[in-house]
């Protein structure tokens, strides 16, 4: 009985993706991205954002790599540590170009009008996904066991794991959508 229990436990741990560190990442060209609605106007009800699973969102190492890259690639130059400045803040519920993983991927790779550069061909695909996972953790979209629980440097805000989840406005049904402030 005891042996069976230990075997089951070992299997359960082996199945946990949280701590896996895979250095041999798949190398592909930038994946086809998704359509993003650029206008707030649309006929009828807004179409639901297409879901695109982020392969790195369940892995704590990838999210922390995303955090490192956020500094290394100077995302913080415009978005500060999520609070915004030159670029929009990333810790709140407002997502101009969508809060889904695929949409954020698109925003990074394709760039957006009025300031967001296109990083197409400049950042390997897996690193874009890591950045996407980290950007989503900034507003508490990731489970707390994956999001970073501490920072390497002094920071004025709570670590991502303690950030309460912001509810992107697109999550509300169309008729209950709150007004933009």
């Amino acid at each position: 009985m005891k042996h069976i229990f230990i075997c089951l436990l070992a299997l359960a741990i082996a199945g946990c993706k949280r701590e896996a560190r895979d250095f041999q990442r798949p190398v592909t060209e930038n994946a086809p991205a998704q359509d993003v609605q650029l206008s707030e106007l649309h006929p009828g009800s807004p179409s639901p954002a297409p879901k695109f699973p982020n392969p790195y969102e369940e892995n704590a190492y990838s999210v922390s790599e995303g955090k490192r890259l956020f500094g290394a690639y100077n995302c913080s130059g415009c978005h500060a540590n999520g609070g915004g400045g030159i670029g929009p803040p990333l810790i709140d519920a407002d997502w101009v170009y969508g809060s889904e993983s695929g949409q954020i991927y698109d925003t990074i790779v394709k760039g957006r009008p009025n300031g967001m550069p296109s990083f197409s061909g400049k950042i390997p695909e897996y690193q874009v996904w890591e950045l996407v996972a980290y950007v989503r953790s900034l507003s508490g979209q990731l489970p707390i066991d994956v999001a970073n629980s501490r920072s390497d440097h002094m920071q004025g805000k709570k670590p991502e794991a303690l950030t309460p989840k912001e509810h992107p406005r697109t999550e509300y049904p169309a008729n209950l959508k709150p007004e933009r402030p």
Partner: peptide, 14 residues
């Protein structure tokens, strides 16, 4: 580079 020094900061560049 990951085949030579696994875990280093440089990504593969196909």
């Amino acid at each position: 580079p990951q085949a030579i020094k696994p875990g280093n900061r440089m990504p593969p560049n196909p």
